[in-house]
Design a binder for these strands. Structure first.
Lengths: 187, 187
DNA sequence: TGCATCATGTAATCAGTTACATGATTTT
DNA sequence: AAAATCATGTAACTGATTACATGATGCA
């Protein structure tokens, strides 16, 4: 139950419409939390009626009007309360791991292509993260005399987590491939 | 939609009751897929009526009777079909990352305790995995002449994935703590 | 006597996914 | 002329969580 809170964080970082939020959930925020536009619109409505967010109609030239949402004090308070509640360290839900164990009862070699596909997807994601890091987080560390921007630093440490995750995953997928190949040739 | 398949894999590795499955989902399988007993019983019923699993009543001495489930050909076929379907590389859903970005709009220092709590939990989990690895996967690699057991090898590579994940997470949490401390002292 | 473990379930609710729907503008 | 992008939604369904419920045995 934290889609609400993810939306609050995203709107605090930058106010925006439901559509814009949906696109952010495909990019930055979506790296560690994903949601479709249908879900987002439904939750936005609930949040608005709870007073967690404010809506403002923004007429646009040559585009449909949009509702821009922002976060008032009540929303900030709701976020703050959640931040102070402990959450459980999550357990991962890893379909691929189920498939790998399942391969013992099928043809292990048939999994190789699937694992390679995942390997490519994670390679792409890593490249994407690294490009984002170069774009958004280089240079200013060296800029002397600038105040340390907490938001920026925190966004960066989360991104470093994503990068570490992708690197770890790629190394593991190499291990999986080596294991599958070994099982394929050793019989 | 893969709880069914996780159950099939678990029952193929070892037939058992709903209760036993629920406990396995707290341990081995649950490391990468979790489910409660309520969910498991419901899904078992559907799977039984679909012919994916067979039930056998097992009377026990000094214990309530149990239903032991096993996997007939139809269930194996269902698993095999799923194994051959491609799945999407999953996006993680990481509450803690949301909290870290949210800390920019609250007191970053207040998160330190929470992050430390997670650090301890992951340390415990890593120790648990390593103990399991020592228990189940040492020695026989060196045993010459034994046929390579595909199931064992595949379980081991999945466990190595869990170990790699925990190590990566611990290193990242150290990074997060260092960042939070830096933000706390630098102002 | 009370608590933990073994064993199985129902009911209600909440969250998430998939399918369907509309309509304007801009790009190919 | 067709496809992509911007923008917002409803409806139906499936999956997951939480609360409630029962009843035996074994241990402290």
């Amino acid at each position: 139950m934290a889609l609400e809170h993810a939306i609050l964080v995203s709107l605090l970082e930058q106010p925006g419409s439901g559509y814009e939020l949906a696109r952010r959930f495909e990019r930055s925020i979506g790296y560690f939390w994903n949601a479709t536009h249908q879900q987002i619109y439904r939750v936005l409505k609930r949040m608005e009626s709870d007073g967690w967010i404010d809506a403002r109609d923004v007429p646009q030239q040559a585009r449909p009007d949009k509702k821009e949402y922002s976060v008032p004090a009540l929303g900030r308070a709701a976020l703050s309360q959640w931040l102070h509640e402990p959450i459980e360290p999550e357990s991962v839900r890893h379909d691929l791991a189920v498939k790998i164990r399942g391969a013992a009862f099928d043809d292990p070699a048939a999994l190789i292509r699937e694992v390679e596909r995942h390997h490519r997807a994670h390679t792409d994601r890593l490249a994407h993260y690294l490009a984002g890091e170069r774009r958004d987080f280089t240079g200013s560390e060296a800029t002397a005399g600038s105040e340390p921007d907490a938001g920026r630093e925190l966004q960066h440490v989360v991104l470093r987590g994503g990068i570490a995750y992708e690197r770890m995953t790629l190394a593991w997928l190499d291990d999986v491939l080596a294991t599958l190949h070994r099982l394929g040739t050793e019989r």
